[in-house]
Design a protein around this nucleic acid. Structure first.
Lengths: 195, 195
DNA sequence: ACTTGTCAATACGGTAGCGTATGGTCTATC
DNA sequence: GATAGACCATACGCTACCGTATTGACAAGT
């Protein structure tokens, strides 16, 4: 993930050399690596093998790139939530959230976004996705027979545990390094959150 | 917390006009507000009512300030853990962690630090404090009769829940806005984490 | 072949922040 | 009250990045 090689995915020659989506993806990767301050026009351009002359053709300014990146992220997050909703059994469905902490792709990006969600340009996107996950979890708990307020508390607990865990594991990768320890902890959390 | 007024706390005339500790405090406040990129020499100097001529007398460079700020934070965090260890009943002790999520002073700073803990200058400090909290929780669970590995899982769960909750509440202050709802959720979490 | 529109390179000015060098001011102390 | 050291101001050069303006390359359609 570096390269001045823009020929990946064998883009048809007719299509533009760079698209706003490519820029947005690069911005998301930058956020994952170094936060919002890493979303800088010239460095990203170097990373993509072009100059900022390209950037300012596709975007109004830096803020517009950030917004586009967040739109892209929200879209994918919504899609992930929809995928996680297809599981019929609510208990299995909830467990899938816990298990997704181990996914070193979406979890890392979700975390990175939440880390920069203090910024007013990111906050509304993060809030909407938070809301959706909370609603998703609440629905699962309701299907399990909990009252509305009860389900809300369970949902908040579950989503908190999810977010907190991936953050701690990011900083302390030594904590659940063995697959065995991780599976054990996943069982523990499942037993705690899925009564 | 702003002003070119350096005469607060009625400092004796003999003492220096600014101390490294004051700079470190200002840096911590900046981290809380805008992350590491807000720890900038000239803006902080303006905030303190001086110029960077003062700063470079007290510190080698910007990195030295960041390190000093993190040392100060770690010191206080260790003190807070020691305070939280004085409670005799392990269950009450654990509940104190949950309740401290509501403390809008330490919790916010702890969160802000964890948000920038990806930076190599911050990471070691955050890791050490994480470790201490985990050990603290593990000890409590052991006192409650759990085995070592079991206590470790409980501790990780509890600390995850703590970190995740304050992060979500920061972004969604509307979620537990009423005192009643918060107390209810605290009871819920306590029931979940303190069996 | 000529034109048009798309995309990118180059060159430019502007700002914010880092770090240095040097000089100034106050205070304690003799 | 002269001096030394602690503390701060000012002025400077440097780099990184933002945004604009202009020009250039290249493809598609005519």
């Amino acid at each position: 993930m570096v390269y001045p090689d823009r020929m990946k995915n064998h883009r048809a020659k007719k299509s533009p050399r760079l698209t706003p989506e490519i820029w947005a993806d690069a911005a998301l990767e930058a956020i994952e690596q170094g936060g919002l301050s890493s979303v800088a026009v010239e460095p990203l351009a170097r990373l993509l093998g072009v100059t900022k002359g390209s950037f300012y053709w596709h975007f109004e300014n830096r803020d517009a790139l950030i917004r586009a990146a967040m739109r892209q992220w929200e879209k994918r997050a919504i899609h992930a939530i929809a995928e996680a909703s297809r599981i019929t059994d609510p208990r299995v469905r909830l467990r899938s959230l816990i298990l997704s902490s181990a996914d070193r792709t979406t979890a890392k990006l979700d975390l990175a976004v939440s880390l920069v969600a203090g910024d007013p340009r990111v906050r509304p996107f993060a809030r909407r996705v938070d809301r959706r996950w909370l609603d998703w979890a609440e629905a699962a708990y309701r299907e399990m027979g909990h009252t509305k307020t009860d389900a809300k508390h369970w949902a908040l607990s579950a989503y908190s545990a999810y977010g907190g865990l991936i953050q701690i594991l990011r900083l302390n990768p030594d904590i659940l390094k063995s697959k065995r320890a991780w599976a054990q902890h996943a069982r523990h959390v499942a037993g705690m959150l899925v009564p």
